[in-house]
Write a protein that binds this DNA or RNA. Structure first.
Length: 485
RNA sequence: GCGCUGAUAGCUCAACUAGGUAGAGCAACGGAUUCUUAAUCCGUAGGUCGAGGGUUCGAUUCCCUCUCAGCGCACCA
């Protein structure tokens, strides 16, 4: 007796016993007067007035000692101890024997303080709110198995307060962003997740199919092209907190579905986007964790002050000691060979240069840094740099080698946009993966005229990781994708 | 996709080095206990040792394949 099925059997028997006594093991509602936290906060007055309170929660711990039982119940705010005594409950004390750890109960009673000094509810009325049929993980160690945490997040949340608190902080971060943008007159919008053409990023999509339209659809890899249509439409300041989907590998900073905020502001350029993201993240850090000095992955990071800005090609030269910018494709390939950089499947000068950047530069950047003015070949949606037409007005925000944001002065010349797309198509013909088809509807929208616009995308999951000290994205996503067992 | 590591009771972990079909704590069940604090005390039960195959008289242990996970690499705006 005590394999998993035996546990269930035992608890089912207790449930039958409840039913026999006319007690519904799954009743409809229960009114509470205080959360556990409110009981503790207001204990002085509650004790003084002998208030009959009502509260509810899940049984986490039970100490039976004959005619007295101590129970700890947990609600969303905290934990409180209950004192159940045959002196108070009389005949109903029998029902205490039908309780199990994991059951959800409601209680009424008065607050008192035990001899050992713990604030406790002396229960005078006990109500079963939900009978639990399966045993919870062990009370002291909780869940240690990391796979179990992700697969059975409900158990993780019951057992580990840190997990619950982390997701509350995630909520706080997203709420901060909304408040910040709403206060400067941005409009939050929703755009299609199901897209007939995918674009706005380089990535492989998830394909799906609409039955009655008999139509191939993609789960969006980005919402950029839709948001810019809204800029054409005159909304001028828009943002979307979007779930994006990319059909690619999974690692500490990549989940196939993830949350990105994209922000577009008319009459602004990438300099404005730098100011916006810097100010927003700094104020967010103060608001959420109370400081701009953080320690992440063992490194001290200062989020305050003016963030460093470095030109993409200058950074390349600094960390490769080579003049990458002036190299022909042939020289670049030789350089990659010499430095053991794999450029299999990379077509075109820009992609090769970017691979060198990823391998040799990114990991060296620790403090928040705007890497600016990327090559135009890898930035088809960005405006050419006003002083150097070989590069674009774009930046990526890097912290500890991880990319947190990507922004441009948005390309709004429809003719040039078409040329850029067509260049991408030539790369695709040469075998480059991850190039989307030309989006004619988007180009047409551009032809009606889009104001000069600054746009930025910020990875929300990574930002949450940074501000909560999580070293894997799975820890900041409630249900990360795992293989089915 | 490649490499390394791991998977033992509901949970947290032992045993396996040198092959003889597994132990503890918590949880559970029975009993004692009317202010406990990871309550305590006495007793009981609980395991296809991740799955499949091989070697062997005999495999949780050795070998092979597979599954899942973690880490690293690769991929990845």
């Amino acid at each position: 007796m005590a394999g998993i099925n035996e546990f269930r059997e035992q608890r089912l028997k207790k449930m039958d016993a409840l039913i026999e006594k006319g007690i519904d093991p799954y009743p409809y509602r229960f009114d509470i007067t205080h959360t556990t936290k409110e009981l503790l906060e207001n204990q002085d007055i509650l004790i003084k007035d002998k208030t009959n309170i009502a509260t509810a929660g899940r049984i986490m711990l039970m100490r039976r000692q004959g005619k007295t039982t101590f129970i700890k119940i947990k609600d969303r705010k905290g934990i409180i101890q209950l004192y159940l005594s045959i002196n108070i409950l009389k005949d109903d004390y029998e029902n205490v024997k039908l309780l199990d750890i994991g059951d959800i109960i409601g209680v009424k009673g008065e607050i008192f303080i035990t001899h050992r000094g713990e604030t406790t509810v002396a229960v005078n009325e006990l109500t079963m709110l939900s009978k639990s049929l399966l045993p919870l993980p062990e009370k002291y160690h909780g869940i240690q198995d990391i796979e179990l945490k992700y697969r059975k997040r409900h158990l993780d949340l019951i057992m580990n307060d840190e997990t619950k608190n982390l997701f509350i902080r995630r909520r706080d971060i997203i709420r901060f962003i909304r408040n910040y943008l709403d206060a400067i007159d941005f409009v939050e919008v929703e755009t299609p997740v199901l897209q007939p053409k995918y674009g706005g990023a380089f990535a492989r999509p998830f394909n799906t199919h609409h039955n009655t339209l008999d139509m191939l659809l993609y789960l969006r890899i980005s919402d950029e092209l839709y948001l810019k249509r809204l800029i054409v439409g005159g909304l001028e300041r828009v943002y979307e907190i979007a779930r994006d989907f990319r059909n690619e590998g999974i690692d500490k900073t990549h989940n196939p579905e993830f949350t990105m905020i994209e922000i577009y502001q008319a009459y602004a350029d990438y300099n404005d986007m730098m100011n916006l993201v810097q100010d927003m993240v700094q104020k967010m850090a103060i608001d959420i964790i109370g400081t701009t000095k953080i320690n992440y992955k063992g490194e001290d990071i200062e989020l305050g002050g003016e963030w460093e800005r470095i030109d993409y090609y200058d950074a390349l030269e600094k960390y490769t000691s080579a003049n990458i910018k002036e190299m022909e494709i042939k020289e670049l390939k030789t350089f990659c060979e010499n430095h053991k950089i794999d450029i299999e499947g990379k077509i075109g000068r820009g992609k090769i240069i970017d691979e060198i950047f990823k391998v040799m530069v990114e990991k060296n950047i620790k403090n928040p840094t705007f890497v600016m003015n990327q090559p135009k070949e890898i930035s088809p949606l960005a405006k050419l740099h006003r002083d150097d037409k070989s590069k674009v007005e774009r930046f990526e925000l890097l912290i500890l080698g991880i990319e947190y944001a990507n922004a441009f002065s948005e390309l709004n010349n429809p003719l040039e946009q078409r040329e850029r797309f067509e260049y991408q198509m030539t790369l695709r013909k040469e075998g480059e993966m991850e190039i989307q088809e030309i989006d004619e509807d988007y180009l047409e929208a551009m032809e009606y005229g889009m104001p000069p616009t600054g746009g930025i995308g910020i990875g929300i999951d990574r930002l949450v990781m940074l501000l909560t000290g999580s070293d894997t994205i799975k820890d900041v996503i409630l249900f990360p994708l795992l293989k089915s067992k």
